[in-house]
Design a protein around this nucleic acid. Sequence first.
DNA 1: CTCAAATATTTTAATCTTAAAATATATAAA
DNA 2: TTTATATATTTTAAGATTAAAATATTTGAG
Lengths: 148, 148
Amino acid sequence: MKTTKKYGPKADAALSLWVKLARAYMTFARRSHDSIRSFGLTEPQFAVLETLGHLGPMTIGVLCKKQLVSGGNMTLVVDNLEKEGLVQRIHSKNDRRAIIVELTEKGTQLFEDTFPKHANNIADAASVLSAEEQETLSRLLKKLGTNL
Amino acid sequence: MKTTKKYGPKADAALSLWVKLARAYMTFARRSHDSIRSFGLTEPQFAVLETLGHLGPMTIGVLCKKQLVSGGNMTLVVDNLEKEGLVQRIHSKNDRRAIIVELTEKGTQLFEDTFPKHANNIADAASVLSAEEQETLSRLLKKLGTNL
DNA sequence: CTCAAATATTTTAATCTTAAAATATATAAA
DNA sequence: TTTATATATTTTAAGATTAAAATATTTGAG
C-alpha cells in the first residue's frame, strides 16, 4: 500500500519497507499454510512438530522462546497436538514446574513423512530468487531482526 | 532455528531464508504492536484505520484484499472499530450487497494524531539498515512476494 | 423474463494469539 | 530455617484468524 502522504523521506522509506516485509511474509506464510493444511495440521502445530523433530524434546518455555509466542498460546497448541496423539507432556524430574514436550511415535512418523515435502515447497517458493539474492536477503533480514 | 538435518542445499537455504523472514517479521511486528497498543488499538484495527486514513472510504471486500485477510475476520475487526466509534458502515447505493467503511470524525482525529508517531517508530526500527540496504531489502522482498 | 452462477458480507465453529492473573515450585537472601 | 523473589505453566478474557456455510444481491446466459 502506497501512502499518499509524506512523513519525511526516512519514515516513508521505512514504512514502505515494513509494508513489503509484511506482504512478503504473509504471502509466503499463505503458501506454507496451504501445504501444511494438507497434512492436517495448523501452522503453529507444524512449527512445534518441526522444532521437536529437529531438536528433540524441550520444555514449553523453550518452545515459547523459539517460536516467539506466549505461554498461554503454547499451552493450547500443545493441548491440541496432544489431543491428536502427536506429542506428549512429561513432567521434568529436575524441576516439577517444568513440562517437557516430546513427539510420540505417531508424531515422529508424521514429521518424517511431511517435512521433506514442506522443505521442497519452501524451496519452490523461494526459487524466484537466485542463490545470491537469497543470501543477500537472509543477511539483511538477520541484520534487521537483530536491532529489534 | 538451525536445522541439524539436510534436505539438499537449495531446500536448506530456502528454509533458512523462510525462518529469517518469519523472525524479522515477527520481531518487527512486535515492535509495531507495542507502539500501536499505546494508542489503545490492536494491529489489525490500526491497519484498517491507516488504510482508510490514507486512501479514503472503501468496501469491506477491498479492505480484505489490501489487508490479505478473510471476510469473516474483517467483519469482526470493523465491528470492534465501529463499537469504539472510529468507523461507520454505510450501505452502498450502487450495490446493496456492498458495505462502505469510512472513518468517523473521531477516527480521523485518532489516525492523524497517531500515525506520525507510528511512522517515526517504524523509521527508528529500520534505522539499523542504511538507506541502500533498505532499498535492496525492499527490492528483494517485492521480488519474493511477487512469485507467491 | 427467468434462472443459474457469481459476488459481498455475515455467521458459525475452531484455532491462534495476547495480557494479566493464578497456581505451583525453585532460588536466593536474610 | 524462613521468607521474599523469580520462574514455569495454566487459566481467563478478549481479540484475531481461517474455512465453510448461509443470506442477500448482482450479473449474465438462455
